[in-house]
Each structure stands twice: as C-alpha cells, then as structure tokens.
Amino acid sequence: MVLYLILLLLLTEIIIIGYGQDVNLEKSRVHNAAHVVRLPPCQACKFLVDSFKKEMERTARGKFEGGDAAWEEERLGSYSHSEVRLVEIQEKLCSSVERGKDQCHALAEEVEQDLDEWWFNKQGEDLHKYLCIDTLKSCCPDNHYGADCKPCPGFPGNVCNKSGKCKGAGTRKGNGKCICDAGYEGDFCNSCAAAYYESYRDEQKLLCSPCHLSCQGPCNQAGPKGCSVCKPGWFMDTEKGCLDVNECFMNPNPCKGKKFCVNNDGSYTCLACDKACESCEGDGPDMCTGCAQGYSLQDNVCVDEREYGRESHVSITRYLTYAGLCIATCIIFQKNTFIASLIGLSVALYISVSEYFLSSSEKNSSLHPAFDVGKLFSS
C-alpha cells in the first residue's frame, strides 16, 4: 500500500512537472514569435525611441530617485548628459519591447552614432523628430503622410472634417485619403452615411446620428417618425411613423407545439411552456391553457397529481399528529393538572409555530426546508 502511494505521488509529480514544462515552452514560443515580428519602419523607430525614453527615466530614478527634467538639471549634474549614463541606457535598450524586439536591437546598433549625436549635442530637440522624422526619414509629423510628408486633407485644424482618419498619417506610407468614422462618408467625411441622419451642422462641425432601428434605409430625423421606409416587422403609421408589429396577436399564432410567443422589437421569440402545460399563453404552470399528462388543474394552476396527493397525505398526517398530542394532553390532565397545563401550552405553541412556518413556506419557496414540518412528518 505504501509503495503504491509512493508510485502514485511520483507519477503525479512527473505529470505536473511535464505540464509546467509544456506551459513554459509554449510561453517561450509565443515570446520568440513576437520578438522576430517585422514592424513597419516608422513603428519600429517609435518603439526604439519609447524604449530610450523609458531608460532615461529609469536611470534618473535609479541614481537620485528623481525623474523631473528641471530637477535632473539641478541635481544630476554632470551625470545627466554623461557618457556613463548613456552606456547604462544602451545596455537596457529594447529590453521592455516584446513585438519586434530583434528588430529594435538591430535598429539600435544601426543608429548608435545618431543617438550619440543627439545625446551629447541635441537633447533640446525631440528625439522622435530628430531620429524618426529628420534622420531616418521613416516617419512624418502628425497628420502628414507619404514619401514627401504631405499634409492630410483639412490640415491643420480640420483633418478629414474631424470625422475620420488620414490614411498613412504620421508615416511615409499611405495615400492621405480619409477613412471615415462610422456614420460618415465622402472624400472628406463631410456627409452622413446610409442609416444616419444629419443631426447638427455648422461651418466647422457635422454630427451624424443613427436612424431608429425600425428604419430601412435613410431617415431625416430621430425616432421612428424619421423613417422613409420601415423594416420588416414594422408598419408605417401616418402620425407616429414605424410601429412594431405584434406577431403574437396574429392568427394563427406563429409558435407551434408546446411553446408561447414573446413579442420583440420588429420580431418575436418562441419559448418553451412549463413542463406542467400541454399548451400555454405564457411562462409558468399558471399560464397553461391545458395541463400535460400527469398534471391536473387546481385553482387555475396545473399541479403534479402525485405531488398534490402527497401534500394531501402530509396534511392529514399533520392534523392527526396534532389530534394525538391533544388526546395525550387530556389523558395526562386527569392525573396531573399542572403538568398537563404545561404540556398543553407546549402543544399549542408547537402547533402555532408549525402552522406559521408551513404557511410562510407556501408563500416563499426559498424558506429553509428544516421549517417544512409537512415534509418532516411525511419522511
């Protein structure tokens, strides 16, 4: 037995270790796959610049627990622009990069002299502009695109009507065409798309809002009154616009078998009747129009015949128990009036408490089963 347990423990440990190794190998594969990803030139340069800036913050904190630029100038002294600090930065450069890590390291080696030049002579200039835009020419300024860094449509203050994005913005790629946000269309995103209407316009702003869900195609205002044509499942009212068709009132009923209809906006859903129902008009045994086999109608509710019979049996048993307790009290009363009085009060209290909890359990099905005296006697 002991040997069996030892073997079982060893087998479990081997499985756990093997599983852990598999997980680690899978994580390693994922990381390696991310590291070798080739990024667009502009994005790769941005990643390198972001990594360089993070290392600048790290070295500032690590040396003096600072990080504020003005504070650095005051406290870091010669270390702020020193070669020692630059070496510390370059040692950790790209270490926090996941996607394109290998590319980041390769680019860092390629532009090492450019970074040295910026570090010692041009720290007053933005590193991204100096390296990615002016030196490598892999990026463009914001809201410029293409090989010549042309301005996007509407530059500077109204690019793509403020309702879209300029294709290739910030890179040396793209054609500068506007990619409109949802609800807008046109070469300059200056008109509303289908299923949207113009809810506001001035010289500088256009606001397109979605049509009501009942509209099929264009609309001219909010709500169902703005629809030109209604979708299937809706009908046009001359005063209120598109109104929902209540399929559940149609004849014949769209739901067949043991199902009932629930109306939705523009449609309907068929849900299964309660198991007590042969047919129904809604959910629950009180909504049956006919009881299923094994169920009978009691007080307009389809109840399980076996359960109903068992409850009747429980009630009879309960009342017989009460009667037995009363008879026993009367017998004792003939021999000892004091004891009989105490027992009588206890019996009365027991009956009152039992009936109270039974009544409560009928109203609240979540009542703890310990209080269900009927079930106690029936067991």
Rank of each mutant, 00 (worst) to 15 (best):
S366H: 12
D202N: 15
V23T: 08
V347R: 10
V229N: 10
D102W: 12
V245E: 01
A69Y: 05
F52L: 12
G174W: 04
F377N: 01
F249D: 09
G241Q: 03
N336R: 12
A147V: 11
N264F: 07
A70Q: 11
K150F: 07
G176F: 05
E91N: 12
K165A: 09
A340S: 15
K275D: 14
L107Q: 07
R306D: 03
G223Q: 08
S346N: 01
M236G: 04
R38W: 02
P218E: 03
K375P: 00
C208L: 02
K162D: 11
G266I: 06
D102T: 15
L93M: 09
G170F: 07
G344V: 04
N300I: 05
F155P: 14
D283W: 10
K92I: 00
C273L: 04
E247V: 08
E278Y: 00
G294I: 04
F357H: 09
G290L: 03
V30N: 02
G168M: 05
E307G: 10
H368E: 05
V373P: 00
I6Q: 07
V36I: 15
D114C: 06
A323Q: 07
E247R: 13
C302Q: 02
P41C: 10
M287P: 00
G266R: 05
L10Q: 06
E362P: 00
C160R: 03
C255P: 09
H81I: 12
D142N: 11
L342R: 13
N220I: 05
D187F: 05
K46W: 01
K101C: 03
D102P: 02
I316F: 11
E13F: 13
R306V: 14
K205Y: 05
Y197N: 10
Q21P: 01
L349T: 12
Y356K: 06
D142Y: 02
Y319K: 14
I179A: 09
F377P: 00
K53C: 03
A44Y: 03
L349N: 06
Y350G: 04
V2M: 02
K101Q: 14
L367M: 15
G266T: 04
S379G: 14
P285K: 13
E203P: 00
